[in-house]
Design a binder for these strands. Sequence first.
DNA 1: ATTGAAATCCAAAACGTTTTGGAGTACCCT
DNA 2: AGGGTACTCCAAAACGTTTTGGATTTCAAT
Lengths: 338, 338
Amino acid sequence: MHVTLKTIAEEAGVSITTVSRALAGYGDVNEQTRRRIIEIAERLGYQPNLAARHLRSKRTYTIGMVIPRTAHYSDPFFMELVAGVGKQASEHGYDLLLSAQMQGEEELSAYRRMVAGGRVDGMIVARVLWQDPRIAYLRQVYHPFVAFGRTEDPAHPYIDVDGAEGMYQLVAHLVEYGHERIALIQSPRELAFTADRCGGYRRGLEAFDLPYREEYVIQGNLTRHSGRLAAEKLLALPTPPSAIIACNDLMALGASEAVHARGLRVGRDVAIAGFDDIPEATTATPPLTTVRQPIYGIGHRLVDMLVRLMQHEEVDNTQVLLQPELVIRASSGTPPTR
Amino acid sequence: MHVTLKTIAEEAGVSITTVSRALAGYGDVNEQTRRRIIEIAERLGYQPNLAARHLRSKRTYTIGMVIPRTAHYSDPFFMELVAGVGKQASEHGYDLLLSAQMQGEEELSAYRRMVAGGRVDGMIVARVLWQDPRIAYLRQVYHPFVAFGRTEDPAHPYIDVDGAEGMYQLVAHLVEYGHERIALIQSPRELAFTADRCGGYRRGLEAFDLPYREEYVIQGNLTRHSGRLAAEKLLALPTPPSAIIACNDLMALGASEAVHARGLRVGRDVAIAGFDDIPEATTATPPLTTVRQPIYGIGHRLVDMLVRLMQHEEVDNTQVLLQPELVIRASSGTPPTR
DNA sequence: ATTGAAATCCAAAACGTTTTGGAGTACCCT
DNA sequence: AGGGTACTCCAAAACGTTTTGGATTTCAAT
């Protein structure tokens, strides 16, 4: 039989109220009674029914997060983020409710289920879109959330990495290494960080008096495969670029494959750079030059901020822009010898 | 204001019961009434309160999983598993409740919170221990679960990979490549798969008339760092081994570092092999010879089996032993030339 | 006209908790 | 004796849903 407050109350000869208040640590129950109740609760292995508690108190101590349901394998960016968020959530006494959904309508209905269904106290939103319906929804219902990524349009709590600055540094780095034909494999336009990063790329070119060439900018969709396809197109141009920057590491790794497949060597014949610094960037051959986003640590900070928002504490700064860190590895070649 | 069944009932001029039954699709409500109710529900954006539903119906459509709360970074094995489980859970209409906990008492109390607290319909247990208190608990309360890993002691539903066979194949492979001094970096004894894998190692040695040498077996704790330490000890022996097998990939990668640090080359001077085939195994330098556990796919199958158990369907086989697949890469060297 | 069955609806209970608004006692101070 | 305070305790309501066990109406068949 399942043991409830009622079981304990009968065993102890007190009311349900008293048991509840004894276990919750209220001051209005005799110390001796409390000890007896606690002893009985432990002996019977009492576990509060959380559904009942949530129903009554409206607090779930759960954080929600929806991740993309990809066809076959796992996205290292999201897995790293889940790890960071899950760890820090536990640290604060929260569990993490995960739902993997196809992007679009299905995803939004998962948000509604979690939020309006009262299953979570707050949400983490990752990979923000340009006009993000998820953020619009959360704002509309005044539900606590923090996003990894920013949009200017409606201001909201976020943590983000300065992608423009990161891209600028990449361009500067490649120019220093002697490159003048620098291509870009772009992320989908609807992603909020795309404009940011592409802006940094353009600003970099301008700063070093390099022309912006239409044919050097190709659209990818963040997957390794799309990076490979894009790089193949670039390398087949009459005047192929000597360096390729991808908007994320996965596409950069795909581009490396394309370079290999052409019989060229990454870092010597073609320089490659990515963005994110996923674990694989370190161990790839050659290791990938990239811009570091401390994803795991950002997961921590997202939760820290969200926990304070959920508890309606004063948060000094709900819009955090982190400075990126250029990580130079072998894929961008060797410094020019002078 | 929050919209509940009551709101809709008032708007439609019917009872709460009727609204509930209309939305649930019961046959005892007039088709016209049903349509009106559904129209109102959609117009008001009704979302059922899941806590209330769970409290009453005892079904949560949630699967629980506890992962280790490691100090700093994410364990690729668990992240891969979470990805597979999360994806397939969504496919079945389930969400995934994750809790990151330190192993031991804290972990067990997370199990109790989820199970006895009525938050989940079933659990996935990963990295099974020799006499696993989590499994003992789940069996005691008759709660549905499936484990990744097996213990003989109490029989339970599981999916596992035949570690003994995998290890045997690794040894055979290394012997074929000319090795006679094959060391083992062992996983912690309390893990269920340790006995399995070590047994395969011994059986392999015996089959090829190689001696089992105490000093060639060193204890690790599954982390990269422990693999490195173990390999350093092995390489410092008077007669160091020519090949090292680690019980998981992470330790094998650590061992590679130790080999590098000694100025030796992995694959030429010392052969290294691991177990798991995590994503990094492919991209490491040199790529790691290992035994493949299709972790993502196992996540799928765990959920498939669990869903059937939770719905009390007949399950033909609740104990699945998968045959492993030897994946030969450069870290074990080149075939002998004859 | 009566009966029976089918179709449609609903009041009330139940799930297990927290919270509200006191009630009862004991004791001390005037 | 009366009034105040501190300390313990509790009945009942509330959270929003599902389910139980009818009640009512309609209509066709006798």
